[in-house]
Amino acid sequence: MTAIQVRGLRKSYRGHAAVDGVDLDIRQGEVFALLGPNGAGKTTTVEILEGHRKRDAGDVDVLGADPATAGRAWRARLGIVLQTANDAAELTVRESVRHYAAYYPNPAGPDDVIEQVGLTAKADARVKSLSGGQRRRLDVALGVVGRPELVFLDEPTTGFDPEARRQFWELIRNLATSGTTILLTTHYLDEAEALADRVAVIAGGRIVAEGTPATLGGRSTAKATVSWLGPGGRETRTTDTPAALIRELGDHELPELTVTRPSLEDTYLSLIGAPR
């Protein structure tokens, strides 16, 4: 089953093509990451999928409906986790989650959702007293309280410290385990690698590569770099057949031997054409 299908999506602002022929297929239950630099067309694409922006051309199907014309019943099946919001500062966490639960026909129990995002101890605290990380957990709670089939997560861990990020990833993994389809946009490649089943890189309004984090952009079959400490200093060779090369180097030990392939970051930077 397909959760999102996009064909030939285009959107221009004042003659500038922000999205220039994007195709996407996201299966139900998949965690899909959309990577790309600022201005690549990520946000425009996602906003069109959410039904918040009109498209110029192309076919878009999200949960079996066209977002441009779909109504409240369709929207009740989506969850949108905002990137930046400071709303409802004066309400408590529990009041906020309860209030948003009331918008949906078949919501989860507010207290269960609060527990799921790890805010039980803060349930009666005013939203304005939460830390940045707790605030984002509340954003997730408000996004999933309606038991959505599809969740949009827009750069969810920007500004997090490493520990908070790990905890947040765990939360997203739990959500994914329950069968929810997740479309994640992010700047962080380790985040995509940690969470996503599949990744697409968008640059200049087009999808320039798509695959699993391990195979993106031919990463798994790219030339390997073999490096070791020789008698005269560090030696480095690139090869398609690293095992054969190491056999060839003989039967003595190779100190500090490493075999590396391009990291996701290397692959990503070459895909978006950034200087390294």
Binding site: I80, L82, Y103
Partner: peptide, 17 residues
């Protein structure tokens, strides 16, 4: 204020009319 702090943006993403 609702427009600036994200209240309206969040509400728009829910099935609230």
């Amino acid at each position: 204020l609702d427009r600036e702090d994200g209240t309206l943006k969040r509400l728009r993403g829910t099935p609230m009319p």
